[in-house]
């Protein structure tokens, strides 16, 4: 045992370690490896992973692509019904272009996320259960394609959770998920 304000004895490296500290090292080490293994494994067997494919895209080009998608989609009172499994969302100050959209529960969509101007935050939750929510970062210059399957019908609200300017708090969009 020594004093943290003085040089330790010459043989400090060989001083014995207390038995309880050794046990704690074992527990802490096992826990560290355990949570690493779980996190890495969950990417293989889990259903919730922030993993998709990213493409570099010019923001103007991405805006055009969202425009083409909106042309092809069917317009309804509740929002756009995508023509196929691809759903485009374009974040801009202070609006979610492409939303609101109407999706089917239980169907896997490829959600395309990109921004036209600055960084935004794509934050989604069902209206009835606020503790279910997913948050992803959206960049201008990147098109991030992430598969998503909404399992329950209902209204899902999208807010921006990355500061994007004075009107940031007004940025709101919606998915209406209907029975498939």
């Amino acid at each position: 045992m020594s004093n943290p304000l003085e040089d330790p004895d010459d043989d400090w490296w060989n001083s014995p370690i207390h038995r309880r500290e050794s046990i704690w090292l074992g527990l802490a080490g096992a826990w560290s490896l355990g949570i690493f293994t779980w996190m890495a494994g969950f990417t293989q067997f889990g259903d919730q992973n922030p993993i998709g494919t990213t493409y570099d895209v010019d923001p103007d080009r991405y805006q055009e692509r969202v425009g083409e998608y909106k042309e092809a989609a069917e317009e309804t009172e509740d929002g756009l019904i995508p023509p196929d499994n691809d759903v485009y969302v374009g974040a801009m100050r202070f609006n979610w272009d492409g939303l609101p959209a109407v999706l089917e529960a239980g169907r896997e969509y490829d959600v395309h996320l990109g921004a036209y101007d600055v960084q935004h935050g794509f934050s989604v939750r069902p209206e009835e259960n606020l503790n279910k929510q997913i948050n992803l970062q959206v960049f201008p210059g990147s098109e991030w394609v992430i598969p998503m399957t909404f399992d329950e019908p209902g209204t899902y609200h999208v807010v921006c959770n990355e500061f994007c300017g004075q009107g940031h708090r007004t940025m709101h969009g919606r998915f209406t998920v209907v029975e498939g």
Partner: peptide, 26 residues
């Protein structure tokens, strides 16, 4: 965690301007 209230925003819990939606449960 329980209400999904975002950071970095001046208001969102009682009112999201231009929307019927809010996080008033929090």
């Amino acid at each position: 965690i329980l209400y999904g209230v975002p950071r970095r925003t001046a208001e969102v819990v009682r009112n999201i301007p231009g929307s019927e939606f809010n996080l008033s449960a929090a």
